[in-house]
Amino acid sequence: MDGSQGDMFGAPLEPSAVRRFLADNPDFIREDDGLLAELGLKVAGGNVVDFGPAALARVHAAHQREAEMRQLLEETARANFSAQAQTHGAVVDLLDARNHSDLAWRVDELARTRFGLAAGVIALESEGNPPAGWKHLVEGQVDMILDGPQRLARMGFAPTALGLFGETSDEVRSMAMVRMAIWEPSRQGLLAFASTDPEGFTPDMGSELVAFLARVVERTAERWPLL
């Protein structure tokens, strides 16, 4: 084997090199029956290389994969656009709240009507009673529900959070929960949403949109003092 052959077999072939070779040697494929058969090609009349069934099947399969991937990307884009549009609408609803009680009602209402969920809850760690409509938590309970003091959000099913959802807790199969810090000095709280679908919220889902809503709830709640 000479040096040029060694270089050819020692490094991967570039598609451009293969293309140049076939352009310079047009008879290479036509005269190699074994290669034609392996590629699923055949020579038609007039020395024209024609696609055989195997080659056509590969082309069709590649086209089908491309179409399915394009459809998946389009569906994902539509779902993301819809979720963002619903979130923006929810922000407007929250900003219209008149007091803490109204804010809690709006969180639950948008969860049910805008997002098709089982419930939406605002919870607060407090020694006394939290605002009307808010769920009461004892000190350290936010850390326990989120499974650690460093965690800002938790997606999926958390048995320790079922008590947040009251009468609907028996139907809850997954949750989305984000830590909040409200007022100065800050009070630990949670914005939590519940779904009856086990796949409604899963641990591999991003929590960005829920966290965005939590920041809106924080800022809105701080309009009024905690009595």
Rank of each mutant, 00 (worst) to 15 (best):
R70A: 15
N47F: 03
E218T: 14
A37M: 01
G200Y: 04
R70N: 11
V59C: 01
L94R: 12
L164H: 05
D2M: 13
D108C: 12
V138I: 10
L39T: 01
M205L: 12
V210L: 06
A55Q: 07
M1Y: 08
T113E: 12
E125H: 05
P225E: 05
F165D: 02
V92S: 15
R20T: 06
D24C: 01
S207N: 07
K42V: 00
F157M: 04
I122N: 11
A55T: 01
Q64V: 12
G148Q: 08
F165K: 04
Q188P: 10
G45F: 05
V121E: 14
E222M: 05
E14V: 00
D147K: 13
R112E: 08
L117W: 07
L56C: 03
P53S: 02
V138S: 14
A37T: 00
E127H: 09
V43E: 00
G3T: 04
V216K: 09
G116R: 11
S186Q: 12
A54L: 01
P198E: 07
I145W: 11
G120M: 06
L103T: 10
R151D: 13
E109C: 10
E125T: 13
L152W: 11
G166F: 01
G10W: 03
V172W: 02
F9L: 10
S186H: 09
H60D: 06
Q188M: 14
T160D: 09
D102I: 09
Q84F: 03
S207V: 09
L72C: 07
F157K: 03
G10N: 03
D24A: 09
M8K: 15
L209H: 09
Q141H: 08
W224T: 10
A111N: 13
V210Q: 07
V107T: 11
T160A: 10
T220I: 14
V48H: 00
D197W: 07
D93R: 13
F115S: 08
G34P: 02
A83W: 04
A132V: 09
D24Q: 07
G133W: 02
A77M: 08
N129E: 12
D147S: 08
F201M: 15
A211H: 15
T168P: 15
W183D: 14
N99K: 11
P159M: 06
R20Y: 00
L22V: 04
A118F: 04
L226E: 08
N129S: 15
G6R: 01
D204F: 06
R179N: 13
A192I: 14
D102P: 04
